[in-house]
Every structure is written in structure tokens, then in C-alpha cells.
């Protein structure tokens, strides 16, 4: 169980996160939506333990995040960051094995290698396991990073998986694949929190959606509860039309054209 209790995060006089509370249980896939600058990434850094909240508390499995050592935390949650810059020519396998580092001290056990292979297969990177990470495309690199994070928590019960825009540079197939993996893990008892930009992808997979605006939690509920043209306008300031998928009966949204405000003299 992850509990965020009235989180506030300030840098100088600017409040990036304002009084946000929520909790998620094992088995839940939570997606966070919001415009640029809404506070998604700041909230993400608080949840991952990278930054300490100015006020408020985060509890993971009944214990304050701040009370865990970094080593303990590494055995409870995996984090897929938005930016991953690697300058050394590690092979894909070596990068994925780094995800197992918290689990072994000197040499990997057979189990560690098996898990690395499983997650590489799942993320579709096993075919270039021996290639240098530096020769891969942006999307392939992102899948390797996902594999590394999955390797880290694969065998951890009720692990927390945090993902910051995991599909940003992925093609359509792997956007679906990544979210499907997240969904599958949540069904296995993981708690998954992901930031996304694509409302429809969120609607397709989320058990729950939180919409942020100006650092505050604006809406919180299931896709059916919170995704509406009105709410999308409130948060993204964009008009959209709602359609219904005839097969799944889920709603999806198509934004309308925006008119640019250019002063023509």
C-alpha cells in the first residue's frame, strides 16, 4: 500500500505540488495526467524518494519512505525515469542486469540471469541482448530501460513501479505493449503509477486516473468517472469530442483544432 498524505513541495516561493493526497493498493494501475508544468514530474520525484516533500508524508507498506535506506527501497520499488543518458557502450544484457544489482553482491545467480532474459523477451529487446546500448534507437533504448526496471522488481511481491512518461518515444505497438505489461504486473499484485500524456491510452488501461492542474489534484477516479470533455477542458484547456468505442464501449476523445492567437495588424 502506498499512501501520499497532503504532499506539498516548494522550491523557494514556488509551490510545485500543493496538498496532494491519495493512496493506492496492490493490484491498482494509477495514471497521472496533466498539462505541462502541472506538477506531474515533481509529484513523481516525491513518490520515488528522489526529493523530500516540504510538507506531508509518503508511506510505503506502512513505513515512511524517508525511513527506508536507499538499499531497502531498491528492493521494494522500481523507477523508470523520463530521461536516461548513458555514454558508455554497455551491452543491452549488461544494462538489464544492472536491474538485478540490488539482489546480488558479487556474481549474479542463475535466477538473476533468468529474470533478465524473461523481461528482455517481454519488452522485445532480447534479439539485441549483446548489442551496444549506444547503437540502439531512442525507442529501443527506452525499452531496454524498462526491462532493467522490470528486472529489478520482477520477483518482489507487491512491488511499486513508477513510470514517468514510459511511452514518450515508443511506436504504437510498444506503447500498447508497455501499458499491457504495466496492467499485467498490477494484476500480479504490483502497485503501478505512471505519468502519461495520451488521454486515450490512459482511458484504455488505467484502473484509476488522477488529473493534476497547477500542482493540485483536480480529479481522481476511474476513467469513466473522470474522463469527460469538460474535465479535459478544465485541465488541458482544449476542446474535445467524445466518441464511444463500439467494441469495448469505452469513451475516447479527439481534440478539436485550436485557433492560434496571432496578432495580425
Amino acid at each position: 500500500m502506498l499512501i501520499a498524505d497532503s504532499l506539498t513541495f516548494e522550491i523557494g516561493k514556488r509551490s510545485l505540488v500543493k496538498d496532494i493526497s491519495f493512496s493506492i493498493r496492490p493490484g491498482e494501475l494509477l495514471i497521472i495526467l496533466g498539462a505541462n508544468g502541472a506538477g506531474k514530474s515533481s509529484l513523481f520525484r516525491l513518490l520515488s524518494g528522489e526529493k523530500m516533500p516540504t510538507r506531508g508524508h509518503i508511506q510505503l507498506h506502512g513505513k515512511e519512505i524517508a525511513a527506508y535506506t536507499v538499499a531497502e527501497l531498491a528492493l521494494k520499488r522500481g523507477v523508470l525515469n523520463q530521461q536516461n543518458i548513458v555514454n558508455m557502450a554497455f551491452t543491452v544484457m549488461e544494462i538489464v542486469m544492472m536491474g538485478r544489482y540490488p539482489h546480488y553482491s558479487n556474481s549474479p545467480a542463475v535466477k538473476d540471469i533468468e529474470i533478465a532474459q524473461q523481461v528482455m523477451e517481454l519488452t522485445g529487446v532480447i534479439d539485441f541482448a549483446d548489442r551496444s546500448y549506444l547503437t540502439l534507437s531512442g525507442g529501443e533504448q527506452q525499452r531496454v530501460q524498462l526491462a532493467r526496471v522490470l528486472a529489478q522488481i520482477w520477483d518482489v511481491p507487491n512491488a511499486l513501479l513508477l513510470m514517468d512518461e514510459p511511452v514518450a518515444s515508443l511506436d504504437l505497438q510498444y506503447q500498447q505493449q508497455t501499458l499491457a505489461i504495466a496492467k499485467m504486473l498490477s494484476k500480479r499484485g504490483f502497485m503501478v503509477v505512471s505519468i502519461l500524456h495520451d488521454i486515450n491510452l490512459a482511458g484504455q488501461y488505467a484502473d484509476r486516473i488522477i488529473m493534476l492542474k497547477n500542482g493540485r489534484k483536480w480529479y481522481d477516479g476511474t476513467a469513466a468517472e473522470v474522463l469527460s470533455s469538460k474535465n479535459i477542458y478544465d485541465v488541458f484547456e482544449i476542446n474535445s469530442d467524445v466518441y464511444t468505442n463500439p467494441r469495448t464501449l469505452k469513451h475516447f476523445f479527439i481534440p478539436r483544432n485550436v485557433s492560434l492567437n496571432i496578432n495580425s495588424q
Partner: peptide
């Protein structure tokens, strides 16, 4: 060696893998 490998992912990432 292991720590420096993890470091090449980035400082934030290395910390997320449990390194001080």
C-alpha cells in the same frame, strides 16, 4: 566495479538501484 556500472545510468538511477 558494480557501483561504477550503475553510475553510468545516471546518479538518480544509481540511487534508485540502492547505491549511496
Amino acid at each position: 566495479g558494480k557501483a561504477l556500472n550503475a553510475f553510468s545510468l545516471g546518479e538518480v538511477q544509481a540511487a534508485q538501484l540502492g547505491l549511496k
